[in-house]
Design a protein around this nucleic acid. Structure first.
Lengths: 249, 249
DNA sequence: GAAAACTCTGTACTGCGTACAAGGAGCGAA
DNA sequence: TTCGCTCCTTGTACGCAGTACAGAGTTTTC
């Protein structure tokens, strides 16, 4: 493993693609990048991204904390590797037809985000240039092969769909996370909050007529609050309609 | 200020709405919740959300760190107050017509996110029950007064639009943030990354034909990478078309 | 006045990422 | 074989985070 400063794009890309590097001289490494990444994913799945600390991962692997820095430049790069690794779980196949294809792309990502909610918390500044992230992009574009759209439009549609899924999944996942952290379900929380709100004159429903009506309806239709899954399916339908109109298909 | 444990919904709601509370006995407070929130916003605008530490805000206000806990239960609640405070900057008026109305809602939020990029980093588990966030929701719904949609649909559309703006703005803001933190522009970064990628056989463009073509085109059309602002406008157009079809308008 | 209630402050605890230097393992050259 | 370079591994330590806690000082209430 080269000795580059952290934040170096070269090093990160080589790690993402598993570039072997020159033969080394010292003792055999006990671990590999893959081990570290896998441990990171394991911890994140079990206890969330906040639990992914260098100490915790080292414990998991039975090594000292600082050993991890042999395999990975730092925590940030590790998260990027975990992200690309998770993208590798996405399928490669696509159903027939652009509409079914894009829907599958969105649904698969939706499921991935629910299998690994921590993916939504990772903030990568630049796009991830890893193999599985590339494959993901390739598949998203392949779903639109039959559509007569230019490259800029294709790119924008991919971005739009990814944004939809991430946004909706965030809603779904944040609720679960908040429930776990506070020990209150959504309903519990609302039952505690509503009476407080009712005591505040400025929060009178008359001041927010539409908001209180729609909020109440949405809350009653589903379990106490809005339903991110319904939002996702609804949004997907609208977006696909919009794309259909654009492409004349 | 009541002595409630942090995480208590009652306390947070009262802070959001500025509920005065019972008369106090001790010395006059030097500050107020508003001072603390304003200082938080000031710091976040200047140096990002990571710079919003209790110590930094206390310094800003010329008090000891622990004094802040007199006004605010903890950092998490402070961020929620900052969020609602920022929502207060959104206008109340709406242009005529549902399409222009929804577009204005989206554009205003887009601008707000660029004025206060840290808003996108705040993770509130539950919806914020503050006055300005209520007003925001009310306005978003008011833009659709003329449409014949049920409450669940209205709620889903609001969520869809907010997701679009947040997603696109995140792209825009993350790029700026990454550039500032790394001292590399997008172009610098790409110029450093591309040659590395070219050395890797598995990353050959032939393996990702669509991705490399579209990626290249998108990169050439704008300054080195995709353009979040274009993505935003494009996505908005598609979504509004989809809503138009749904509402038969 | 005395006591209670409240604000303010300094200190300290835990936990984070990671810089640094020392110890030990394995390979190449003599 | 043995020396020495290279590299993996480790413990310690630094700076910074949020905030618990206890003491000091200020204002109101009885």
């Amino acid at each position: 493993m080269d000795t580059e400063e952290p934040g170096d794009p070269r090093r990160t890309i080589e790690l993402l693609w598993g570039v072997p590097g020159p033969p080394r001289r010292g003792p055999k490494p006990k671990l590999s990048v893959e081990h570290v990444v896998a441990a990171g994913v394991r911890v994140a799945d079990a206890d969330g991204l906040d639990a992914v600390t260098m100490r915790r991962i080292a414990d998991e692997l039975g090594v000292a904390t600082m050993s991890l820095y042999t395999y990975v430049p730092g925590r940030e790069e590790l998260l990027e590797l975990m992200l690309d690794h998770a993208h590798g779980e996405l399928p490669g196949e696509l159903p027939e037809g652009w509409r079914a294809g894009l829907a599958a792309v969105a649904e698969d990502l939706w499921r991935l985000y629910h299998r690994h909610p921590w993916l939504l918390e990772i903030r990568v500044g630049r796009p991830t240039l890893g193999p599985h992230t590339f494959a993901k992009y390739e598949r998203e574009l392949a779903a639109m092969d039959e559509l007569d759209l230019d490259d800029v439009q294709l790119d924008a549609i991919v971005s739009l769909l990814n944004g939809l899924v991430a946004g909706a999944a965030r809603g779904s996942v944040d609720a679960t996370r908040a429930a776990r952290r506070s020990g209150m379900t959504d309903v519990d929380w609302w039952n505690r909050s509503a009476p407080v709100l009712a005591e505040i004159p400025a929060a009178d429903p008359a001041h927010f007529p539409r908001a209180s009506r729609v909020g109440t309806t949405a809350g009653q239709t589903y379990g106490g609050s809005s339903d991110p899954e319904h939002h996702f399916r609804f949004g997907l339908g609208r977006i696909l309609d919009g794309i259909g109109k654009l492409a004349g298909a």
